[in-house]
Simulated scan of single mutants.
Amino acid sequence: MTRAAPYPLLSVRNLSKHYPLRSWWGGTASVFKAVHDVSFDIRPNETLGLVGESGSGKSTIGRAVTMLNPPTSGTVAFQGTDLARLSAREMRGMRRHIQMVFQDPYSALNPRMNAGAYVMEPLLLHDTGRSRAELRDEVAGLFERVGLDPRFARRYPHQFSGGQRQRICIARAIALKPRFIVADEPIAALDVSIQAQVVNLLQDLQDELGLSYLFISHDLRMVRYLCHRVAVLWRGRIVEMADSETLYGDPRHPYTRRLLAAVPVPDPVVERQRVSAIGLTAPPSSETGHDLTEVAPGHWVAQSAAG
């Protein structure tokens, strides 16, 4: 695992994303707080894992930091530039450095476009100044880098397996040599054996290209394997954040303990002892005690559980 640099590449401060709820007779009745007051940093060559149950706001954060769905408030600074303040043209230029890999590769691919054209598209959009022949060679190299035969470039999405489709999406994401990638549940739709291959590919690309990731996942075992640090999200708020070994070895927040207790262990005796030791106490209300306190160097816990 590549060692992360000490300074942030991406700095998120007090990010919130709220959605207005319509009443039956029209107008805005109330506001749904999908994400509220979230802050974190991601350093160069670092992978930050974002975990939590479905509906906790993980994908909302991923889309907010890439400006696909801009935040309601807060700042998202990439290399010191607040992305929310950029014009559409300026943000288009910034997308060379910020990319996203989605959960469902089949939905992300264009069924009318062959795989080679799909990977080549960002190179054409950002006008790299190279000829079509040079771009085809570049695409062939990208296919090889993600473990695909370059001859597959002429095939269409329906002719690939799920793992191959995700590799195509990864090839497109790295085509412009970005610095930062949001991986939103990139292995959730894949078979278990293929999941490990894709995670290993992401790790190899990080080592080769110096990438930073925001890795969103339900799979806590893969998160522990791939991520330098982990942030636990509950009802739109981060309730605990620490390096992977610390968080998995010494979880402090009740919700973190509940998540870890849900990971099965293939030994009934060990499983009963582990669940009993962790305990399944209900987490406190998400509306109070959300400020994080540093209980140990680099280990942050919501105040309500920090003691």
Rank of each mutant, 00 (worst) to 15 (best):
T256A: 01
E245A: 15
R224Y: 12
P268G: 11
Q166V: 12
R172C: 07
I174K: 02
T75S: 15
R272A: 14
Q273I: 10
P6S: 10
Q99Y: 09
I216K: 07
R151E: 15
Q206Y: 08
V146I: 11
Y255W: 09
M241A: 10
Y225L: 13
D219E: 13
F40L: 14
R85I: 04
H36S: 11
R96P: 01
R272W: 02
G49H: 03
Q197M: 10
A173T: 08
M67F: 06
S217G: 15
Q79E: 15
V301Y: 01
D204E: 14
V263G: 03
T256Y: 00
A189W: 06
T288F: 13
L211P: 01
C169N: 15
M241I: 13
V301S: 00
C227Q: 03
Y255D: 01
R132T: 09
L176D: 03
E287Y: 14
R136T: 13
K58E: 06
Q164R: 05
P251R: 04
L124V: 11
G62S: 09
D104M: 12
D267T: 05
F143Q: 00
R151A: 15
N110G: 03
E53A: 12
L226R: 09
Y106V: 06
W25F: 14
F215K: 05
S30W: 06
R132H: 10
N45W: 00
A108D: 13
N200R: 15
L135N: 08
E121L: 06
P297F: 01
R165C: 04
V31G: 06
A282H: 14
K33C: 07
V223H: 07
E138C: 12
S54W: 05
W300Q: 08
K33F: 07
K33P: 05
A173G: 08
L202F: 09
R235I: 04
A108Q: 12
M113W: 08
V269I: 11
Q79R: 14
I168G: 01
S244D: 04
A133H: 13
H228Q: 04
C169S: 12
N45Q: 08
Q206L: 09
G80N: 08
R22H: 12
H126P: 00
Q203A: 14
F180G: 01
V232D: 00
F160M: 07
V198R: 01
K33V: 07
E287L: 15
D207L: 13
Q303H: 09
G55R: 03
F160I: 07
L190V: 10
R272V: 11
I216D: 07
T75C: 10
W300M: 14
T60P: 02
Q99N: 10
H228C: 00
N110M: 03
F40S: 08
I98S: 01
P268M: 12
Y19E: 05
H290T: 13
G62H: 04
L109K: 07
R172K: 12
A196P: 00
V230M: 02
P254V: 00
H97V: 05
V146Y: 04
Y7N: 13
R92N: 14
M94A: 14
N14L: 02
F78T: 03
Q159A: 13
V275M: 02
E240P: 01
A64S: 15
I216Q: 09
V12Q: 14
Y225P: 05
T60R: 00
P122K: 12
